[in-house]
Design a binder for these strands. Structure first.
Lengths: 345, 345
DNA sequence: GCCGCTTTTGGGAGCGCTCCCATTACGCTG
DNA sequence: CAGCGTAATGGGAGCGCTCCCAAAAGCGGC
């Protein structure tokens, strides 16, 4: 019975596990990787050796030999500070983390700020240092997705970039969320329902506007383009849009704002204009972020299942990496939103 | 002149770069790793070859041969949802990311939720899959720091765990921030200044209380233990503490609350009790989080330089990894806070 | 008891790099 | 111009694993 030779101070290697279990290296490897072509007796012997020695595979060696990394990158465009200020980021991370918890996959966090970092990232990815990429908040004109496509690097994005999105994506139902929000305002007796939109180049913002339009028509209200004020997802933008709306259509009695942050700006303007919320003007936001809960009055808002989105993105990516045939249909998930009614409506 | 042999489809290897430059593998390696023992001519030749071939070192091979990983882990205890809800997390990540931007270091994000994940983490670290660890929001009784110490794994924590902290740490000046907050209240003419504390097992919360006490004494006010209400960093806890305070000392005219979230709870109770803010009771929070800006009235709060803290933590860790002698003094940074005065005081 | 098949096993050949030692080239000194 | 110290270089060994081929073992059927 050959005792496993434990080299001074080093961590046990596969070789040592194999020796301890009285099998060859190949067999030990098979057991550890869950191959079925191993007899039960052998499997148990190896598993015992692993336990006794406290063996943990060396990731680098695996990566080198197996030509994979067991790591995925979460790529976050840093300029999107909006993204950070909101719990969005944390929730996505938590979701992704949860999905990866039972996996050997590591999560690499990559912030891309300036152009230099962008290039470094491209290099990174080209060098195949990760098995796949999660891209959040991609802009429609971002070249990164195409680059990944060319490299054959598995990739999942959050939020389709346009109607015919080709990349696997996970999104919340912006259209339906907006529709429900406006329907809710109508059900509260509002007849002059305006909207403040996000940047319409962002497809999600466009979808929210579509939802608004659909609900307005469905309610039998007269669509009025002067009730639509484009903004940019910022608090100041929301304020400015609200001012415009009040100037154009002072008789409005409800506003669906495409983000909570913008709603905060709008709310401020309403206060200054002496309009009470919700008595004079009912307000509904989007995101159900922290600010919604702490606004005065607390803001009715459309909640997105962000953590779940993160989880789904991760799962989709894992599937992709596991290698579904490339011409298989690209899954595009749309998760339902939920209207959280508070005192502003 | 031997043309570099480019293997079909593969990425160029060091060997190929060396061939292309007409030097040996060792020399090429030296150039790439910035060793000084290379002649200028050779260096230039190799650099040219690298550029032409678009060579990027294989991380796995490096890790395997060099017995390091060029990666650090940011370990986040997930149960600390409080931590996530606030911009704290994002800001730390951004700071760390910024510090790592010019480095070859990768940032691994590790969420530890339940106990199983904790064990997995320990295994991870034991297996030396990272070169160092950033620990945020460690509890005083967490065994992880000790484990790391034993393993000789470089580590930096955010927030000292107790007065005699032995690990390198980066913290904001909780004491001074609290002191300044209370001093500010006093300067606004408040004489009955109470405080709502965080969980006092958290050293930072204790320091804030110390700061409060110091300021009260310095102002020549009579210290009164009934003006001190312990809470737990939650909104509900803050509300409850405020209720207690009002019951015990109805004549209070100022409150320093050790977190914005608790302040939100306290503010709610004050409203219900018919106390105006700031006319009847002035309020100061801590963290300068999103809720502070959106409270009604906007909350005066103590801002911590969180992003900077992340940056410093990362730098400290890199130093540690670069290998300062182990008995060198462990740096413990304390960064200044800033009082952001708004309408609540 | 032999043959041919399948299942199981062992271990060689690398993966691409760093480390380090031996070798060569160079530059002075006497 | 020999001799010696130093700077520069080449390349073997090996990191720990996966892949895969060939060998061994097992199992029926005739």
């Amino acid at each position: 019975m050959a005792a496993a030779r434990v080299r001074s101070g080093g961590r046990p290697t596969l070789e040592e596990v194999a020796a301890r279990a009285g099998v060859g290296r190949g067999t030990a490897s098979r057991v550890i990787n869950g191959s079925p072509r191993v007899s039960d007796a052998t499997r148990q012997a190896v598993e015992a050796a692993v336990a006794e020695l406290g063996y943990v595979p060396n990731r680098a060696a695996r990566a080198l030999a197996g030509n994979r990394t067991d790591a995925i990158a979460l790529v976050v465009p840093e300029p999107e500070t909006r993204f950070f200020a909101e719990p969005y980021f944390s929730a996505i991370v938590r979701g992704v983390g949860a999905a990866l918890a039972d996996t050997e996959m590591q999560l690499l966090l990559t912030l891309v700020g300036n152009d230099r970092e962008r290039r470094r990232l491209a290099q990174y990815l080209t060098a195949h240092r990760v098995d796949g990429v999660l891209l959040v908040a991609v802009h429609a004109d971002d070249p990164l997705p195409e680059l990944l496509e060319q490299l054959g690097m598995p990739c999942v994005i959050s939020g389709a970039r346009h109607p015919g999105e080709t990349l696997p994506s996970v999104d919340s139902d912006n259209y339906e969320g907006a529709r429900a929000a406006v329907e809710h305002l109508v059900s509260r007796g509002r007849r002059q329902v305006a909207t403040i939109t996000g940047r319409l180049e962002v497809y999600g913002a466009q979808r929210r506007l579509d939802g608004y339009r659909a609900a307005v028509s469905a309610a039998g209200l007269t669509p009025d383009e002067r009730l639509i004020a484009p903004a940019d997802f910022t608090e100041e933008g929301g304020a400015k849009a609200m001012r415009d709306l009040l100037a154009r259509r002072p008789e409005l009695d409800g506003v669906f704002v495409a983000s909570d942050v913008m709603a905060a700006g709008a709310r401020q303007v309403l206060r200054e204009a002496g309009r009470r919320v919700p008595e004079d003007v009912a307000l509904v936001g989007f995101d159900d972020s922290v600010v919604a809960r702490h606004m005065h009055p607390p803001l009715t808002s459309v909640r997105q299942p962000i953590e779940e989105m993160g989880r789904r993105m991760a799962r989709l990516l894992l599937d992709e990496i596991a290698g579904r045939s490339p011409d298989e249909e690209r899954p595009s998930l749309v998760l339902p939103t939920e209207l959280v009614v508070r005192d502003s409506s």
